[in-house]
Amino acid sequence: MKFDNPEDIIQLTPLWKGERFPNGRPKVPEDILRRMRDITLEEAWGPLWHHGYHFQFEGDFKITRPEQIMVGRAVTAVMVPKRPDLHDALLNYGFQDEGRKGFFNQWVIDTLVEDDVVVVDMFDKIHMGTYVGGNLSTAISTRTKRGGAVVWGGIRDNQQISEIDNINIYYRGSDPTAIADVTMVGMNTPTRIGKAICMPGDVVLGTPAGVIFIPPHLAELTVVQAEKSQVRDVFGFVRLRDNVYSTAQIDAAWDVALWEDFLNWFQNDKAAAKYQHLTWDAEVEEARSRNMEGPQSDVRL
Protein backbone atom coordinates (compact mmCIF):
# COMPACT_ATOMS: atom_id res chain seq x y z
CA MET A 1 0.00 0.00 0.00
CA LYS A 2 0.97 3.64 -0.49
CA PHE A 3 0.03 6.70 1.51
CA ASP A 4 -1.58 9.61 -0.33
CA ASN A 5 -1.54 7.72 -3.62
CA PRO A 6 -2.67 9.80 -6.66
CA GLU A 7 -3.91 6.76 -8.61
CA ASP A 8 -6.17 5.70 -5.73
CA ILE A 9 -7.51 9.22 -5.15
CA ILE A 10 -8.37 9.71 -8.82
CA GLN A 11 -9.99 6.27 -8.99
CA LEU A 12 -12.16 7.04 -5.96
CA THR A 13 -13.32 10.49 -7.17
CA PRO A 14 -14.32 9.90 -10.83
CA LEU A 15 -17.25 12.36 -10.79
CA TRP A 16 -14.94 15.31 -10.23
CA LYS A 17 -14.01 16.81 -13.63
CA GLY A 18 -12.20 19.94 -12.45
CA GLU A 19 -8.70 20.83 -11.35
CA ARG A 20 -6.77 18.51 -9.04
CA PHE A 21 -3.80 18.85 -6.73
CA PRO A 22 -0.59 17.00 -7.72
CA ASN A 23 -1.66 14.07 -5.50
CA GLY A 24 -4.97 13.77 -7.40
CA ARG A 25 -7.13 15.36 -4.70
CA PRO A 26 -10.05 17.38 -6.16
CA LYS A 27 -9.41 21.12 -5.95
CA VAL A 28 -12.77 22.86 -5.63
CA PRO A 29 -12.28 26.50 -6.74
CA GLU A 30 -11.60 29.18 -4.14
CA ASP A 31 -14.69 31.11 -5.26
CA ILE A 32 -16.92 28.18 -4.29
CA LEU A 33 -15.23 27.93 -0.90
CA ARG A 34 -15.74 31.66 -0.34
CA ARG A 35 -19.43 31.46 -1.20
CA MET A 36 -19.83 28.31 0.90
CA ARG A 37 -19.00 30.35 4.01
CA ASP A 38 -22.27 32.26 3.56
CA ILE A 39 -24.66 29.32 3.50
CA THR A 40 -26.28 27.44 6.36
CA LEU A 41 -25.92 23.80 7.29
CA GLU A 42 -29.50 23.07 6.24
CA GLU A 43 -29.00 24.80 2.88
CA ALA A 44 -26.00 22.55 2.24
CA TRP A 45 -27.75 19.44 3.52
CA GLY A 46 -30.81 19.71 1.25
CA PRO A 47 -29.18 19.21 -2.18
CA LEU A 48 -27.01 16.37 -0.85
CA TRP A 49 -29.99 14.55 0.65
CA HIS A 50 -32.01 14.88 -2.54
CA HIS A 51 -29.11 13.48 -4.57
CA GLY A 52 -28.91 10.38 -2.37
CA TYR A 53 -26.05 11.45 -0.10
CA HIS A 54 -27.65 10.61 3.24
CA PHE A 55 -24.55 10.11 5.40
CA GLN A 56 -22.64 13.38 5.11
CA PHE A 57 -23.42 15.07 8.44
CA GLU A 58 -22.12 14.51 11.96
CA GLY A 59 -23.04 16.79 14.85
CA ASP A 60 -21.68 15.09 17.96
CA PHE A 61 -18.60 17.26 18.51
CA LYS A 62 -17.01 19.74 20.83
CA ILE A 63 -15.78 22.84 19.00
CA THR A 64 -12.89 25.13 19.84
CA ARG A 65 -14.65 28.14 18.27
CA PRO A 66 -18.38 27.40 18.02
CA GLU A 67 -19.14 30.91 16.75
CA GLN A 68 -16.80 30.53 13.76
CA ILE A 69 -17.73 28.89 10.44
CA MET A 70 -15.10 26.56 8.98
CA VAL A 71 -14.80 25.80 5.26
CA GLY A 72 -12.04 23.92 3.46
CA ARG A 73 -10.98 20.96 1.35
CA ALA A 74 -10.65 17.65 3.18
CA VAL A 75 -7.33 15.89 3.73
CA THR A 76 -8.31 12.58 5.30
CA ALA A 77 -6.61 10.02 7.54
CA VAL A 78 -7.68 6.73 9.10
CA MET A 79 -6.13 5.51 12.36
CA VAL A 80 -6.53 2.12 14.04
CA PRO A 81 -5.37 0.64 17.36
CA LYS A 82 -1.70 -0.33 17.36
CA ARG A 83 -0.76 -3.83 16.26
CA PRO A 84 3.06 -4.06 16.45
CA ASP A 85 3.76 -5.88 13.17
CA LEU A 86 1.43 -3.63 11.14
CA HIS A 87 2.61 -0.53 12.97
CA ASP A 88 6.29 -1.17 12.33
CA ALA A 89 5.74 -2.15 8.69
CA LEU A 90 3.81 1.04 7.86
CA LEU A 91 6.03 3.36 9.89
CA ASN A 92 9.17 1.95 8.27
CA TYR A 93 7.59 2.14 4.81
CA GLY A 94 6.80 5.82 5.34
CA PHE A 95 10.34 6.53 6.53
CA GLN A 96 12.28 4.47 4.00
CA ASP A 97 10.12 4.47 0.85
CA GLU A 98 8.32 7.81 1.07
CA GLY A 99 10.87 9.87 3.00
CA ARG A 100 8.44 10.95 5.71
CA LYS A 101 9.51 12.26 9.12
CA GLY A 102 7.96 12.18 12.58
CA PHE A 103 4.82 10.30 13.56
CA PHE A 104 1.77 9.49 11.44
CA ASN A 105 -0.19 12.61 12.38
CA GLN A 106 2.77 14.80 11.42
CA TRP A 107 2.89 13.16 7.99
CA VAL A 108 -0.64 14.40 7.28
CA ILE A 109 -0.19 17.90 8.63
CA ASP A 110 3.08 18.34 6.69
CA THR A 111 1.08 18.01 3.42
CA LEU A 112 -1.49 20.73 4.16
CA VAL A 113 -1.93 23.76 1.95
CA GLU A 114 -4.16 26.84 2.10
CA ASP A 115 -7.86 26.15 2.78
CA ASP A 116 -7.30 22.53 3.82
CA VAL A 117 -9.10 20.80 6.69
CA VAL A 118 -7.68 17.67 8.32
CA VAL A 119 -10.38 15.00 8.72
CA VAL A 120 -9.28 12.10 10.93
CA ASP A 121 -10.94 8.93 12.12
CA MET A 122 -9.26 8.26 15.48
CA PHE A 123 -11.89 5.56 16.21
CA ASP A 124 -13.22 7.83 19.00
CA LYS A 125 -10.06 7.43 21.05
CA ILE A 126 -9.42 10.27 23.50
CA HIS A 127 -6.98 8.98 26.15
CA MET A 128 -3.70 8.72 24.21
CA GLY A 129 -5.78 9.59 21.17
CA THR A 130 -4.97 13.29 21.00
CA TYR A 131 -4.35 13.87 17.30
CA VAL A 132 -3.30 17.50 17.69
CA GLY A 133 -2.06 19.76 20.44
CA GLY A 134 -0.73 23.29 20.52
CA ASN A 135 2.21 22.74 18.15
CA LEU A 136 0.38 20.83 15.43
CA SER A 137 -2.62 23.16 15.63
CA THR A 138 -0.25 26.08 15.09
CA ALA A 139 1.13 24.25 12.06
CA ILE A 140 -2.43 23.76 10.74
CA SER A 141 -3.05 27.48 11.24
CA THR A 142 0.11 28.46 9.41
CA ARG A 143 -0.39 26.09 6.48
CA THR A 144 -4.14 26.39 5.91
CA LYS A 145 -4.65 30.10 6.81
CA ARG A 146 -8.36 29.56 7.66
CA GLY A 147 -8.90 25.79 7.69
CA GLY A 148 -8.83 23.50 10.70
CA ALA A 149 -9.47 19.91 11.70
CA VAL A 150 -12.25 17.40 12.30
CA VAL A 151 -11.06 14.71 14.71
CA TRP A 152 -13.19 11.71 15.64
CA GLY A 153 -11.06 11.40 18.74
CA GLY A 154 -9.14 13.62 21.10
CA ILE A 155 -7.03 16.76 21.25
CA ARG A 156 -4.75 18.25 23.92
CA ASP A 157 -3.51 21.73 24.85
CA ASN A 158 -7.01 23.19 24.59
CA GLN A 159 -5.98 26.45 26.23
CA GLN A 160 -3.29 27.02 23.63
CA ILE A 161 -5.51 25.96 20.73
CA SER A 162 -8.33 28.28 21.82
CA GLU A 163 -6.00 31.24 21.29
CA ILE A 164 -5.50 30.38 17.60
CA ASP A 165 -8.19 32.51 16.01
CA ASN A 166 -7.98 31.68 12.28
CA ILE A 167 -8.87 27.97 12.44
CA ASN A 168 -11.51 25.80 14.05
CA ILE A 169 -11.23 22.28 15.43
CA TYR A 170 -14.08 19.82 15.91
CA TYR A 171 -13.23 17.01 18.31
CA ARG A 172 -14.78 14.42 20.59
CA GLY A 173 -12.92 15.10 23.83
CA SER A 174 -9.69 16.35 25.37
CA ASP A 175 -6.96 14.70 27.39
CA PRO A 176 -3.49 15.73 28.60
CA THR A 177 -1.84 12.56 27.25
CA ALA A 178 0.09 12.52 23.98
CA ILE A 179 -0.93 10.41 20.99
CA ALA A 180 0.16 6.78 21.37
CA ASP A 181 -0.66 3.18 20.44
CA VAL A 182 -2.25 4.07 17.11
CA THR A 183 -1.33 3.34 13.49
CA MET A 184 -2.34 5.16 10.32
CA VAL A 185 -3.68 2.75 7.69
CA GLY A 186 -4.96 5.33 5.20
CA MET A 187 -4.10 8.84 4.07
CA ASN A 188 -6.45 10.57 1.65
CA THR A 189 -8.71 7.54 1.60
CA PRO A 190 -12.43 7.20 2.44
CA THR A 191 -12.83 8.11 6.11
CA ARG A 192 -15.67 7.50 8.53
CA ILE A 193 -16.50 10.31 10.96
CA GLY A 194 -19.23 9.06 13.28
CA LYS A 195 -22.19 8.33 11.05
CA ALA A 196 -20.75 10.30 8.12
CA ILE A 197 -18.28 9.53 5.36
CA CYS A 198 -15.68 11.94 4.04
CA MET A 199 -13.58 11.62 0.89
CA PRO A 200 -10.34 13.45 0.03
CA GLY A 201 -11.22 16.78 -1.54
CA ASP A 202 -14.71 16.99 -0.04
CA VAL A 203 -15.69 20.51 0.97
CA VAL A 204 -15.92 20.54 4.76
CA LEU A 205 -18.51 22.96 6.14
CA GLY A 206 -18.26 23.29 9.91
CA THR A 207 -21.07 25.11 11.73
CA PRO A 208 -22.24 25.44 15.35
CA ALA A 209 -24.50 22.43 14.72
CA GLY A 210 -21.76 20.17 13.39
CA VAL A 211 -19.92 19.26 10.20
CA ILE A 212 -21.16 18.32 6.73
CA PHE A 213 -18.95 16.84 4.01
CA ILE A 214 -19.91 18.01 0.52
CA PRO A 215 -18.69 15.90 -2.44
CA PRO A 216 -16.61 18.11 -4.74
CA HIS A 217 -18.75 17.40 -7.80
CA LEU A 218 -21.79 18.73 -5.89
CA ALA A 219 -20.12 21.75 -4.29
CA GLU A 220 -21.08 24.32 -6.91
CA LEU A 221 -24.62 22.95 -7.19
CA THR A 222 -24.97 23.13 -3.41
CA VAL A 223 -23.81 26.74 -3.26
CA VAL A 224 -25.97 27.86 -6.20
CA GLN A 225 -29.12 26.24 -4.81
CA ALA A 226 -28.45 27.75 -1.40
CA GLU A 227 -27.93 31.22 -2.85
CA LYS A 228 -31.08 30.95 -4.95
CA SER A 229 -33.05 29.96 -1.88
CA GLN A 230 -31.59 32.88 0.06
CA VAL A 231 -32.40 35.56 -2.51
CA ARG A 232 -35.88 34.18 -3.16
CA ASP A 233 -36.49 34.41 0.58
CA VAL A 234 -35.33 38.04 0.62
CA PHE A 235 -37.76 38.83 -2.19
CA GLY A 236 -40.55 36.86 -0.51
CA PHE A 237 -40.13 38.70 2.78
CA VAL A 238 -40.37 42.05 0.97
CA ARG A 239 -43.52 41.13 -0.91
CA LEU A 240 -45.16 39.59 2.15
CA ARG A 241 -44.49 42.74 4.19
CA ASP A 242 -46.06 44.80 1.40
CA ASN A 243 -49.08 42.44 1.22
CA VAL A 244 -48.45 41.84 -2.49
CA TYR A 245 -48.71 38.05 -2.23
CA SER A 246 -50.05 35.53 0.23
CA THR A 247 -47.79 33.02 1.95
CA ALA A 248 -49.41 30.30 -0.17
CA GLN A 249 -48.32 32.08 -3.35
CA ILE A 250 -44.76 32.58 -2.10
CA ASP A 251 -44.42 28.98 -0.88
CA ALA A 252 -46.00 27.36 -3.95
CA ALA A 253 -44.34 26.85 -7.32
CA TRP A 254 -44.18 30.37 -8.80
CA ASP A 255 -46.15 31.19 -11.94
CA VAL A 256 -44.77 33.27 -14.80
CA ALA A 257 -46.20 36.55 -13.48
CA LEU A 258 -44.56 36.07 -10.09
CA TRP A 259 -41.26 35.16 -11.75
CA GLU A 260 -41.43 38.33 -13.86
CA ASP A 261 -42.00 40.38 -10.72
CA PHE A 262 -39.06 38.64 -9.02
CA LEU A 263 -36.72 39.17 -12.00
CA ASN A 264 -37.53 42.86 -12.16
CA TRP A 265 -36.76 43.15 -8.43
CA PHE A 266 -33.66 40.94 -8.78
CA GLN A 267 -32.19 43.12 -11.53
CA ASN A 268 -32.84 46.45 -9.83
CA ASP A 269 -32.90 46.10 -6.05
CA LYS A 270 -29.62 46.57 -4.17
CA ALA A 271 -30.63 43.77 -1.77
CA ALA A 272 -30.05 41.35 -4.67
CA ALA A 273 -26.67 42.78 -5.71
CA LYS A 274 -24.56 40.01 -4.13
CA TYR A 275 -26.56 37.40 -6.06
CA GLN A 276 -26.23 38.94 -9.54
CA HIS A 277 -24.08 36.04 -10.76
CA LEU A 278 -27.13 33.72 -10.58
CA THR A 279 -29.27 32.93 -13.62
CA TRP A 280 -32.93 31.91 -13.68
CA ASP A 281 -33.63 30.67 -17.21
CA ALA A 282 -34.39 27.11 -16.14
CA GLU A 283 -36.82 28.18 -13.42
CA VAL A 284 -38.71 30.56 -15.71
CA GLU A 285 -38.95 27.96 -18.45
CA GLU A 286 -40.31 25.45 -15.94
CA ALA A 287 -42.96 27.99 -14.88
CA ARG A 288 -43.96 28.51 -18.51
CA SER A 289 -44.29 24.76 -18.96
CA ARG A 290 -46.51 24.52 -15.89
CA ASN A 291 -48.72 27.31 -17.20
CA MET A 292 -49.24 25.36 -20.41
CA GLU A 293 -50.07 22.19 -18.48
CA GLY A 294 -52.54 23.82 -16.09
CA PRO A 295 -52.59 24.83 -12.40
CA GLN A 296 -50.21 23.07 -10.04
CA SER A 297 -50.28 22.55 -6.29
CA ASP A 298 -46.58 21.93 -5.72
CA VAL A 299 -45.20 23.57 -2.60
CA ARG A 300 -41.62 24.79 -2.42
CA LEU A 301 -40.04 23.15 0.61
Results as ranks from 00 to 15, higher is better:
residue 3 F to L: 13
residue 3 F to P: 00
residue 5 N to S: 14
residue 6 P to C: 09
residue 9 I to S: 04
residue 11 Q to N: 13
residue 11 Q to Y: 12
residue 15 L to H: 15
residue 16 W to Q: 02
residue 16 W to D: 03
residue 21 F to E: 02
residue 22 P to Q: 04
residue 23 N to D: 15
residue 23 N to A: 08
residue 24 G to E: 07
residue 24 G to P: 01
residue 24 G to H: 04
residue 28 V to G: 06
residue 30 E to F: 09
residue 30 E to C: 05
residue 30 E to K: 15
residue 31 D to M: 08
residue 36 M to Q: 08
residue 38 D to A: 08
residue 39 I to H: 00
residue 41 L to M: 11
residue 42 E to Q: 14
residue 43 E to K: 02
residue 44 A to R: 10
residue 44 A to W: 05
residue 46 G to N: 09
residue 47 P to H: 09
residue 50 H to V: 14
residue 51 H to D: 13
residue 51 H to V: 00
residue 51 H to S: 15
residue 51 H to I: 00
residue 53 Y to W: 12
residue 57 F to E: 12
residue 61 F to C: 01
residue 61 F to V: 01
residue 65 R to H: 15
residue 66 P to Y: 05
residue 67 E to H: 07
residue 68 Q to H: 12
residue 69 I to C: 05
residue 74 A to L: 08
residue 75 V to H: 06
residue 75 V to L: 03
residue 75 V to T: 06
residue 75 V to G: 02
residue 76 T to F: 04
residue 76 T to E: 07
residue 77 A to F: 05
residue 77 A to W: 05
residue 80 V to P: 06
residue 81 P to Q: 14
residue 81 P to V: 10
residue 82 K to Y: 11
residue 83 R to N: 12
residue 83 R to K: 08
residue 85 D to V: 09
residue 86 L to Q: 15
residue 88 D to C: 01
residue 88 D to N: 04
residue 90 L to F: 07
residue 91 L to N: 03
residue 91 L to Q: 05
residue 91 L to H: 07
residue 92 N to P: 00
residue 92 N to M: 01
residue 92 N to E: 11
residue 96 Q to P: 00
residue 96 Q to R: 05
residue 98 E to Y: 11
residue 98 E to M: 15
residue 100 R to D: 03
residue 102 G to E: 10
residue 103 F to T: 11
residue 105 N to F: 06
residue 105 N to L: 02
residue 106 Q to R: 09
residue 107 W to K: 03
residue 108 V to L: 11
residue 109 I to K: 06
residue 111 T to G: 06
residue 112 L to C: 10
residue 112 L to T: 02
residue 115 D to H: 15
residue 116 D to C: 11
residue 116 D to Q: 07
residue 120 V to I: 15
residue 124 D to C: 07
residue 124 D to F: 14
